[in-house]
Amino acid sequence: MRKTCLEMVHKLAQKDERIFFIGSDLGIGTLDEFKKEIPERFFMEGVSEANIIGMAAGMALEGKIPYVNTIATFITRRCFEQLVLDLCLQNVNVRLIGNGGGLVYAPLGPTHLAIEDIAILRSLPNMTILVPADANEMRKMMPETVNHPGPIYIRIAKGGDAIVTDERPFEIGKVFPMKEGKEALIVTTGVILGKALKAADILKKEGIETAVLHCPTIKPLDSETILEYAKNTKVIVTAEEHSIIGGLGSAVAEILLEANFDSKKRFKRIGIPDCFADQYGSQESLMNYYGLKEEKIVTTIKSLHAAS
């Protein structure tokens, strides 16, 4: 997914001279072809995120479209005020590419785990948040980021993630229904989509027809589609590789409560609990540790379904 994202930046830059690339201190060889071909629009500026975001804002104020790439924690937390003021307040067309969203950097520990990135960015006016599920979706999504107004955060997963999306055209701000079902609903985003689809298959075999909604755009959230699906079901579960505070689960909870449905609903968020990781291991092992797996989605839905 990361490779596809950067290849797409190169490809888009070949066609559009407004596109610049700025990295911090990325791995050697990153976008070498871009650098060779368009050196005047390739920047590698060192471990200086505050400066890089301001610099990107300055370019964007002049009409350019900088794509800025570094590790997700550092592009969100380290330079948060630059994101708020330089990008969002001025509403400029800067694209942030955050490597390793969620638990990807599990072996490196809590300093590198971006599990609150969506929560903090979701609170910023004008910010768009994109969380694709796989490389296929990334390929469809990137061209849509060029002319979209205002700043965009693109959350990148580990890479080599299973392809679970289809060929429907990508549209920023739209939910993608992936499975239909009247008994339960899973609302998910990013690579957890794969687990949600597997969970829905298991539930179907057990007689619980479960719909799956994939939300690659978390902000602006396609509330209309989510509520349309939520209206006709009794059980709603969100699943995401993010803290249960402030992410997709919170966003869905907010709109569900304000919808004031007449019928009773059962609702549960599945995500990373409110804690710093106390284990290393791998992304997959930490996901299992925190219950981000299809079995947990299945048991959660079954118990809510039984209680409904």
Binding site: A57, G58, A60, K64, E81, L85
Partner: peptide, 24 residues
């Protein structure tokens, strides 16, 4: 007014982006 300022330490990086743009 070329940039929103008031929180200190923001103007110079923005100016650098603009100066690089001018050179480009």
């Amino acid at each position: 007014v070329e940039a929103s300022t008031g929180s200190l330490g923001h103007g110079l990086p923005i100016g650098i982006g603009m100066a690089i743009h001018a050179k480009y």
